[in-house]
Nucleic acid binder design. Structure first.
Length: 434
RNA sequence: CGGGGUGUAGCUCAGUAUGGUUAGAGUACUUGGUUUGGGACCAAGGGGCCGAAGGUUCGAGUCCUUUCACCCCGACCA
């Protein structure tokens, strides 16, 4: 993409109400803009990042044998009456009426709809197990949306549901999904922990959360420094007051707190802040029983499906990447999430030599299907560098005043280091890095 | 849902207490010129029914009423 043709409205100043780095930089970098309370538009850069994360989630799930579907976003209220959630979820469900005065709900989650889809279509134990998922818009009418993409009302979430003929098989799938989620978070380049969770309102027994470690995280977790044990404090302490007290502490304050207990492996435990970006639950038969969704077992007896449910906050992950990877200048995207992996910056577009090389390199990389941005704008060096740092391209090739000596520079966004490279070697160097 | 706050140029904000020329600044934008390695400089210019509706007044960004939106603290929340 030529920067001169791209719609990337960057700004010097952040919205006054943005407190989180991800919120500030995603708005300043022209990734998103606010439409209303908890509602965001994704502009071109934001859309690219969102789609990249979605693609990685889909790829790993498909490899693990999950089936992608798409459920209608607008759902009849009757669906929610059957499970009782039209009462229990209360005002979080946004209700609307059509021209016939029929009531509908904008889906906040989809246990009911997915069970209805499977019910009476899968009728034998021979057709189990089955894992269905979708990556689709959700709407939860939060009392107080905040923190940009981190806690919006409308958001993109992957929600998956599995169906089994036995608890053992459901637990097997639960473990498979835990490993699949680990692959996804690792591919995204995130530092994360799988922690034991409180099972909350959705119900069920086993429950694990995937936390992206970040100082600004809303959740407090305990992790071990020598094994991979981790737990949300909500799952450890029964005492509400204790949980509230810990949650109110900042990251720095938490680091000061000693934990006297040792991990069962003997390792040292400490408090961290995390962003909940994934959650997996063992549901059991809660929804299949409520909705009378049964299959026939080996003896021809009707039994409710054993179920598990799996969620990943895709749009929340966009913000999480930045919460974990940023500095005072802006975003630092990981290789897997960067909207463009390399940015070619011509320092002075009036210099013919510089433009010729820039153009040549740009077209060559484009021909190789490499995600490349070509900053061909008529702006000065400093302006374009600040812009590149704010957006957070992992690498920027600076074609500037050193060109007369046959040298260009490779700028690494994460380290902010510039390396001089002969013009003849830059192409191969880029291929090597990405 | 309880408490508090804010709506003025694309963006960040002054101005409102005490009503009174043509409503301001910075930034962004347009044009011309200079400049070209860290968000340049000079000059000229465009852009606002001051959130909306109603009211008081000779006169309202400013006062009154209603309403909408957004934000903050709390409660709630995969």
């Amino acid at each position: 993409m030529r920067r001169s043709r791209a719609f990337i409205p960057t700004t010097k100043e952040a919205p006054s109400d943005a407190t989180l780095p991800s919120h500030q930089f995603l708005v300043r970098g022209g990734f998103i803009n606010q439409q209303g309370a908890g509602l965001y538009n994704f502009m071109p850069l934001g859309k690219i990042v969102l789609e990249k994360i979605r693609a990685i989630v889909k790829d790993e799930l498909d490899k693990a044998g999950c089936n992608e579907v798409q459920l209608s976003f607008v759902t009849p209220i009757g669906l929610w009456d059957k499970s009782g959630r039209s009462e229990t979820m209360g005002k979080e469900m946004l209700r609307i009426s059509d021209r016939h005065d029929n009531d509908f709900v904008l889906s906040p989650t989809n246990e009911e709809a997915m069970v209805e889809m499977v019910k009476n279509r899968v009728t034998s134990y021979k057709d189990l197990p089955l894992n269905l998922y979708q990556i689709n818009t959700k709407f939860r009418d939060e009392a107080r949306p905040r923190y940009g993409l981190m806690r919006g009302r409308e958001f993109l979430m992957k929600d998956g549901y599995s169906f089994h003929s036995s608890t053992e098989d459901m637990v097997r799938e639960f473990n498979l999904m835990e490993n699949t989620y680990k692959k996804i978070f690792t591919r995204l380049g995130l530092d994360f922990r799988v922690v034991e969770a409180d099972s909350g309102a959705i119900g069920g027994e086993g429950s694990k959360e995937f936390h992206v470690l970040a100082d600004s995280g809303e959740d407090t977790i305990v992790i071990c420094d020598s094994c991979d044990y981790g737990a949300n404090i909500e799952a450890i302490y029964d005492d509400e007051a204790k949980i509230d007290e810990l949650n109110e502490k900042s990251y720095e304050e938490l680091q000061e707190l000693p934990i006297t207990e040792k991990c069962s492996c003997g390792g040292k435990l400490s408090f961290k802040k995390g962003i909940e970006a994934g959650h997996i639950f063992q549901l059991g038969t809660k929804y299949s029983e409520a909705l009378e969704a049964n299959f026939n077992d080996e003896n021809g007896r009707a039994k409710p499906f054993e179920m598990a449910t799996f969620g990943i906050g895709v749009s929340r992950l966009v913000a999480s990447v930045i919460e974990q990877n940023h500095d005072e200048s802006g975003c630092i995207w990981t290789k897997a999430t960067a909207p463009y992996i390399v940015n070619i910056m011509v320092s002075n577009i009036k210099d013919e030599m510089q433009m010729t090389l820039g153009e040549e390199l740009y077209l060559k990389l484009l021909g190789d299907d490499i995600e490349v941005m070509f900053d061909d704008r008529k702006d000065r060096f400093g302006f374009k560098m600040k812009d590149a740092e704010l957006i957070g391209f992992p690498y920027t090739v600076i074609i500037g005043k050193e060109l007369e000596n046959g040298i260009v520079q490779l700028y690494d966004r994460a380290t902010k280091e510039k390396t001089s490279i002969n013009t003849g070697d830059i192409y191969n160097k880029i291929l090597e890095l990405i």
